[in-house]
Nucleic acid binder design. Sequence first.
DNA 1: TCTGGGGTCCTAGGACCC
DNA 2: TCTGGGGTCCTAGGACCC
Length: 400
Amino acid sequence: MTSPSLPRRIAHLDMDAFYASVELLRYPQLQGLPVVIGGAPTQQNESRGRDWAGRLAQVPIEAFPRLAGYVGRGVITTATYPARAFGVGSAMGMMKAARLCPQAILLPVDFAEYRRWSRRFKQVVVSIAPVMENRGVDEVYIDFTEVPGGQREGGGVLARLLQKSIFDATGLTCSVGVAPNKLIAKMASEFNKPNGVAVLLPEDLQARIWPLACRKINGVGPKADAKLQSHGIHTIGELAARPREWLVEHFGRSYGAWLHDAAWGRDDRPVVTESEPVSMSRETTFERDLHAVADRAELGRIFTELCQQVAGDLQRKGYVGKTIGIKLRYDDFKIATRDQTVERHTQDAAVIRQVAGRCLKRVPLTRRLRLLGVRVGNLLPAACAASLPPPGWGESAPLF
DNA sequence: TCTGGGGTCCTAGGACCC
DNA sequence: TCTGGGGTCCTAGGACCC
């Protein structure tokens, strides 16, 4: 069925400044200007209607809200390329961004809209190359290996076809990396951003990958990078030069071996077209830090609402879970989690509220709280759980 | 001027069972 | 009475990603 002779060609496709580009579709007058998307996603922003968008589309540039004078705890979610030129980038605090680029136009996030455009571009992808793996709203992996034409110019021809098809259908641009596996494809998609294509063959590893910083490896974060640097390892080439045993000794059996494989461009993970969720959660950062005693009523309301939201998510998506947990972030930014596994899977807000409440009793509550979250894990599709035997089934009853 | 929200996976210790 | 593994589940924390 599959041709064993074909070399594996895996693409990583990454939409360019996705949220910002979607906003530019409806406010084309902002083209070329520094625009940032962000701020605390309040209810008003989430349900910002098409009416508002439609009206703003007619509005002159001067009428848009600016970053200057922003007060609050939000962070930047995305910035257009002109805004990035000022040093503004995602995950940056809004207050800091306002200092760097006060004239930037500030738009609130509208996830519902981004999801709509996400579905559109992914539909285009699967209509051309069906083996696609979702990696969030704005990126996908695609297996080119068996796609007709997927091997031409190492995948470059198909990559450009996808770019053109997505642009024709949506007006959005993307960047694509094609390589022998997901790990290298992910790095390659950044090479010619925005609106670029990069094709890497196995023999390109030394010239194109080894000069890169270790942090460019998907899976090497700030902690691992700092530790690598402390050992004098800055580039992927330097990482590749370390013996596997040395890496295992310093980074553990699993992570050390993985680091070695990554540096040598080895990665045989398949492109997975479907997967089931493991957990669902809702969390919120308060506008000001709250105290369990002094702000008991307000916290109670928020807590109940989070439980209702998670329950609503589970019901809408058709899942039940049996591990219910909470997450706190204290004013010193330290995080505590507690969870409890119950006998029966549930999607009921009252049950979640009750078990989460018990979790809350097990955690220190002297410090002020910055964030509260509720999580349900150990998920099962509701349809499967319905056919599950009742708890305790099959346990041997005491004889006497 | 402090730093969002929604996820996944891994580790490590303890309980409990065979 | 003492010794020993292996396997699974639960819980807490942490790294990392988009």
